[in-house]
Simulated scan of single mutants.
Amino acid sequence: MKKFLLLVLFLVISGLAYSQQEKDHKTLNQVEVAPPEFIGVHNAAIFLNEKTPHSSLLMDYMKTKVEYPAIDIDRTNEGKEIIRFVVNPDGTLSNFKVINSVSSSIDAEVINALKTTDGMWKPGYNNEEFVPMEKEFSMVFKIIGTNDLLSRATVQFKRGNKLLLIKEKPKRALQHFDQGLVYVPESKPLLFLRGLTRYELGDKDGAYLDWKRIKSLGGIEADGWLDKYSEMEGYAEMMKTVNE
């Protein structure tokens, strides 16, 4: 009986060891990628543990550093600011780029605040090797008592749509699409129409940027709203860009 139990135990242990080897082998043959994480302390690059910080940690930190510029409050400049930057292997930041601007003063305010997080990041890695990776940060600037940003973006969408399709005034339409995207920069319909408008005005590079942004946001759902635009110049190029 004892010999039987020992044999069973041996088989169980051997099986577990083999399973672990198989697991390790699969892990070694997979590409493991992890994005940068804001830790909130200096020299964060030395923390290589598995703990994932709370997703609101960076926003909580930024709220203590960012002030709504007085000039923007006076001018009622509102919208969603988006800044892209690179987190380097040592946890420092570089290559700041404005993806969606509410105003130049808000651009500077947010970038300067982000720069104070230099060294507070656990860098991203690719197959256990720390590499530079892009990260985006967004922050909404809105004055209490004004209309919500989505409804204001909708107004701009409708005005731009009318100017583009009915009055055939793409330059004026572009101004409304630009303003609508300041309010709601992830709006696929607005990005789609601004891309077509840019294309019609000869700005193909700008059009492709808008359409690639749509692709990064998950493409365009087939909800029927595209039908009336299918005959417009640049439509085929847009669908190719989004779906490639």
Rank of each mutant, 00 (worst) to 15 (best):
N100F: 02
N126E: 09
F85D: 01
V131N: 10
M133F: 13
T117P: 03
D107M: 02
G145V: 12
L93S: 13
I82K: 10
P132F: 09
T146N: 14
I73L: 12
M120Q: 14
A108Y: 00
V66K: 10
E168L: 14
L93V: 15
M133N: 14
T64Q: 15
E78R: 09
K63H: 11
P185F: 03
Q156C: 13
N127L: 11
N100W: 02
E78K: 03
R84W: 00
T154V: 09
W121E: 12
D148S: 11
V66L: 11
Q179S: 12
V131H: 07
G145K: 08
N161V: 00
V87S: 07
D60E: 15
M120T: 05
S104V: 10
K115E: 01
P69F: 11
L149A: 13
I71H: 01
K135W: 08
N95Y: 03
L174P: 02
G160W: 05
N100G: 01
F96E: 08
F137E: 05
R152M: 14
L174D: 08
G124I: 10
T92L: 04
D148F: 06
G160F: 05
L114P: 11
T154S: 12
N127E: 06
D60W: 07
R75W: 00
Y68T: 01
F192T: 00
I166K: 09
G79K: 07
K115D: 01
Y183R: 06
M133A: 14
V110R: 03
E67W: 10
S138T: 04
L150P: 01
L163S: 06
P170D: 05
D178G: 02
K65E: 13
M62H: 03
L163R: 10
T116Y: 04
Q175T: 13
G124D: 09
E109R: 03
A70F: 07
L149R: 07
L191N: 10
V182C: 07
N77K: 08
M133I: 13
L163Y: 05
R172I: 07
P170A: 09
V155C: 00
V182T: 15
S187V: 03
F192Y: 08
N147C: 01
N100K: 05
M139T: 10
K162G: 02
I111P: 00
D74V: 04
P185V: 03
P89V: 06
A70M: 08
G79C: 10
H176E: 13
K80C: 09
K158N: 14
A113Y: 01
K142A: 14
V184K: 04
D72N: 11
N95I: 00
P89D: 05
S105H: 08
L190M: 07
A108G: 00
P123H: 06
N77A: 05
K135E: 15
N127S: 15
M120P: 06
F96N: 06
A108I: 02
K171Q: 12
P132V: 07
S104I: 05
